[in-house]
Simulated scan of single mutants.
Amino acid sequence: MALPYLLKAPTANNYNPKIVIPTYYFSVLSLTNIPFFYFNTNFLIPKILKIKGFYMYCISIIATIFLLILFNSFLRQFLLNDSINYRILPGFGTAFQILFILAISTSYRILSDNLQEEDFRKERENERLKSELSFLRSQISPHFMFNVLNSIVSLSRRKPQMVEPVVIKLSELMRYMLYESDDAKVSLQREYKYLQSYIELQKIRFGDDVEVKFEHGLITEDKSIEPMLLIPFVENAFKHGVGMIERPLIEVFLGVEDHKLVFMVRNKFNHQFKETKDGSSGIGLNNVKRRLELLYPESHNLIISEQEDWYEVTLIIGND
Rank of each mutant, 00 (worst) to 15 (best):
L3E: 03
Y5S: 01
Y15G: 09
K18P: 00
I34K: 10
I34Q: 06
F37V: 06
N40H: 08
F43N: 06
I45F: 04
I45P: 02
K50Q: 14
Y55M: 08
M56K: 13
Y57T: 10
I59P: 00
S60G: 15
I62M: 12
I62S: 10
I62P: 00
A63M: 13
T64D: 03
I65P: 00
L68T: 01
F71A: 13
S73N: 05
Q77E: 08
L80H: 02
L80I: 09
L80R: 02
N81Q: 13
S83D: 13
Y86R: 02
R87N: 06
I88V: 14
T94R: 00
A95V: 15
Q97K: 05
L99R: 01
F100L: 14
I101M: 12
L102Y: 15
A103I: 14
I104F: 11
S105F: 04
T106C: 11
T106D: 04
Y108D: 04
I110E: 04
I110C: 00
D119L: 11
F120G: 00
R121C: 02
K122S: 09
S131V: 10
L133Q: 11
S138L: 05
P142T: 09
M145Q: 12
L149A: 07
I152N: 01
I152Q: 01
R157F: 15
P165G: 08
P165C: 08
P165M: 08
V167E: 05
V167Q: 02
K169Y: 08
S171L: 07
R175V: 04
E180V: 09
S181E: 04
S181D: 04
S181P: 05
D182T: 14
D183Y: 10
K185F: 11
V186I: 15
R190E: 13
Y192G: 00
K193R: 13
L195V: 09
I199S: 07
E200K: 12
I204Q: 07
F206V: 03
E211N: 13
V212E: 00
F214Y: 14
E215R: 09
E215V: 02
H216Q: 11
G217W: 06
T220G: 08
K223A: 09
M228N: 11
L229Q: 02
E235C: 07
E235Q: 15
H240G: 01
V242H: 05
G255R: 03
V256E: 15
H259I: 05
V262L: 10
R266P: 00
N267L: 05
F269S: 03
F269V: 05
N270W: 09
H271W: 08
H271E: 11
H271R: 12
Q272Y: 13
K274M: 05
E275T: 14
E275Y: 12
T276M: 07
G279T: 08
S281L: 02
G282W: 05
G282F: 04
I283K: 01
N287Q: 05
V288W: 04
R291I: 12
E298Q: 13
D309G: 02
E312R: 10
I316P: 01
